[in-house]
Design a protein around this nucleic acid. Structure first.
Lengths: 123, 123, 123, 123
DNA sequence: GTGGTCTAGACCACT
DNA sequence: GTGGTCTAGACCACG
């Protein structure tokens, strides 16, 4: 589990965990019936509160991506990777569209928006 | 002052006010030395607490967009177009960066992100 | 009455009026039994609210520098110019001392404080 | 945290808190990454509203002296000595300027003001 | 009338 | 537990 927490960005930690586990499932690095690290071990590994990891796992289970078996652990559910991919793509699309619309409301030209985008993407 | 409060979204009310007043300044609907509605009248109009409006006005003043005169009112500050443009550009940059980072967390390649971006921008 | 209002500084307008009339009395430009401009005329002249002028006159009367005769006007009281001078000097002394002490608390050297003072006085 | 609130003076409570925390940082009693008392605990300790403490903390963060992490607490920011020194110098400058202006409003000559200043500084 | 401060308590999100 | 927002109402100072 190579999960990276960015404490300085404004995305909540539990959401970063959810996003990255979804990504691992989509890419096939986590397959159906694979077991996730325990709440405690992951919290130790990431040096964050166990409650935060728990919140992420709860969210994943609520969305149907995992199944928790009491006393045993949390397992990857029978996931529809295609569906997941489509969902994530749509989420990204929505975010990008919202950003672009905001830029246009601000009177920033499409050319400027594009160059800004490329600047960030290239790093 | 046509300010619209969306209570159902997660953006704080005072921030919605700040954004919309900035927008009015940018679009020239509020000009230098124009007076903003009083804290109390706007709070009455929007049916929200006066403190919430005050918080918005404090934020605007802190960012240099307005000047408050005790006992008189809050006025649009001078020479803020440049400031506003820079500010908005940074805001757009932050939004784009966040979207890109989310895409990467989802394991979507930069190429895919770029093509999605172009699709939205062109479409 | 050459009273100058500085709207941009943080001293309340009514206090500026009080200070300057005290100064006129001290310098002998306003003598015992001289009549002050009416509230209305001074408010017109300074382009400020009549209530603000009234507040200044009330303050002066409260401190014993003027006497108001209903229906006639406001007159300079039998003033003790020496006393006034001493009072104002002490007030200035207190302000300067407080500023110097604050600077020292901040760890700023006397030399720096002095050069800052000279800069402001000359500038 | 030995913060003392003076209810009888006209300086707002939140500003007194801001000033004293800045002072603690300047004197090194609060170092980089130190955590400030929580809003609630300080409000309990000082027997004031939590909102008042929050306003002080917001001000400190706005001025770059602290960093607030949601759900964790408020921490002393890095590299603020320079900032603080500049800030304090400006504060002293404002106080001195105000004193000088008051002296001039009182009709006291610059020479008199200077000699008074020197008297206090040397004395 | 205006803005400035403060209270006491509520509900929410994050850890 | 933490901070973040919001309310409804109070009192003060300035114009």
């Amino acid at each position: 589990m190579k999960i990276i927490i960015n404490n300085s960005c404004m995305v909540p930690i539990y959401e970063q965990i959810v996003d990255q586990i979804k990504s691992l499932i989509r890419r096939g690095e986590l397959k159906e019936n694979d077991i996730l690290p325990s709440v405690r071990s992951l919290s130790r590994e990431l040096k964050i509160s166990a409650l935060t990891v728990k919140k992420a796992y709860d969210s994943l289970e609520g969305q149907g991506f995992t199944v928790t078996v009491h006393g045993k652990g949390t397992y990857v559910a029978a996931a529809n990777r295609e569906l997941l991919l489509e969902e994530q793509r749509k989420e990204l699309e929505a975010d990008l569209e919202q950003a672009i619309q905001k830029g246009r409301r601000y009177g920033i030209s499409d050319e400027e928006i594009r160059s800004l985008f490329e600047l960030i993407l290239e790093g």
